[in-house]
Simulated scan of single mutants.
Amino acid sequence: MAGNTLRKAARLAAVGTLLYAARRYYRNWGTTKEEYRRWLPGDELMYRPSVWSTTGVWIDAPVSAVWPWLLQIGHRSAERIDPEWQRLEPGDVVRLTPKGWLGLRNGLTMTVAQVVDDEAVVLRGRPPGFPWEAVWTFHVEPRWEDRCRLLARTRAQLHHPGDLLLTELAGPITALFMRRTLLTIKRRAQDSLKAAELERAV
C-alpha cells in the first residue's frame, strides 16, 4: 500500500515538474518582457488573476489589413472578409470551439466585453459557457507603415483548489489554441494583402 502511494506521489511530482517546465516556455510565447509585463486594455476586468499569459506574432501587414480578420474571430472557417461579420459589439457571443469539443456539449463560448477600433477586442468568459472566469484579449499594434504586432493575453480567476490543476493541465492546449489563432489571422491578413497588391499590379 505504501509503495503504491509513493509511486502515485512520484507520478504527480513528475507531471507537476513537466507542466512547470512547459509553462516557462509557452506562458509568454513570442513576446518581449516589456510586452507581457505592461498593462493592456481588458486587464482592468481582472486585476489579480490566478494565472495569465501573453502570446505574440509579427505580421507583415498594416493594422488596416489585420483588423477585419480580428473582428471575424469565432468564424474559424472564414477565408474571406464578410461584411456581415464586421460588426463585433459588446454583448455578442463568440464561439471558440465547435459543440462537443473535448467532450463539452456546447463547446466553449465567450462574450465580447469591449471593442477598441483598430486596437483591441476583449472577450470575457464565465460558466456555463466557459469553465471558469477568464478574460481573453487581442491587441493589434502598428510597427512602421507595413508591419504590426498581434498580441493575445489570457487571464483567469480561480475559486476552487481543483481549478488550478485543471488550468495547468489545460495550459498547453490553451497556448496552442491562442498561437494557432494568431497565426491564422497572420496568414489571412498577409495573403489578402498580397492578393490586393497583385490586383492593383494587373
Rank of each mutant, 00 (worst) to 15 (best):
G129Y: 09
H160L: 08
M178I: 10
V140S: 02
P172S: 00
T167K: 05
L151W: 01
P131C: 06
V122E: 05
V121Q: 03
A156D: 09
L151E: 03
P172Y: 01
R143N: 08
A134P: 12
P128T: 02
T154F: 10
G162Q: 14
V135M: 05
L176D: 02
W132R: 13
R124E: 15
L150H: 03
V122C: 09
H159Q: 14
R147L: 06
L165S: 01
F130C: 13
H139Y: 04
G125N: 13
V121L: 08
A152P: 00
A134D: 11
C148R: 01
G162T: 15
D146H: 13
T137C: 02
P127G: 02
L165E: 00
F177N: 10
D163I: 07
P161L: 11
G171E: 02
A152W: 03
G125R: 12
E145R: 13
P131E: 05
R124V: 14
W132D: 15
R153T: 08
V121R: 04
R147P: 05
I173M: 12
G129S: 10
R179T: 07
T174W: 03
H159W: 12
W144I: 07
I173P: 01
R124L: 10
L164I: 06
V140Q: 00
A175N: 03
P172H: 00
D146V: 09
E133L: 13
H159F: 14
E145C: 06
R149Q: 01
T154C: 08
H159K: 14
L151D: 01
G129Q: 09
T137Y: 00
L150V: 04
T137A: 07
T154E: 10
Q157M: 14
A175D: 01
P131G: 08
L176E: 05
E145A: 12
G129A: 08
L164K: 10
H160Y: 09
F130V: 06
T154G: 12
R149F: 05
L151I: 01
P172V: 00
P128Y: 05
R126I: 13
R179A: 05
L123Y: 13
L164M: 10
L165D: 00
T154M: 11
L164E: 08
W132Q: 15
T137F: 02
A156C: 11
R124I: 13
R124A: 14
G171I: 03
H139V: 07
P172Q: 01
W132I: 14
T167Q: 12
F177T: 13
F130T: 09
L150K: 02
T174M: 07
R126W: 13
R124W: 02
E168G: 00
F138L: 05
P142Y: 12
R149N: 02
L151M: 01
R153A: 03
H159T: 15
V121P: 06
Q157D: 14
R147S: 07
A120L: 11
L165G: 03
L158R: 10
F130W: 15
V121F: 08
W136R: 11
T137G: 05
P131F: 06
R179M: 08
L166F: 15
C148T: 02
G129P: 08
V140R: 02
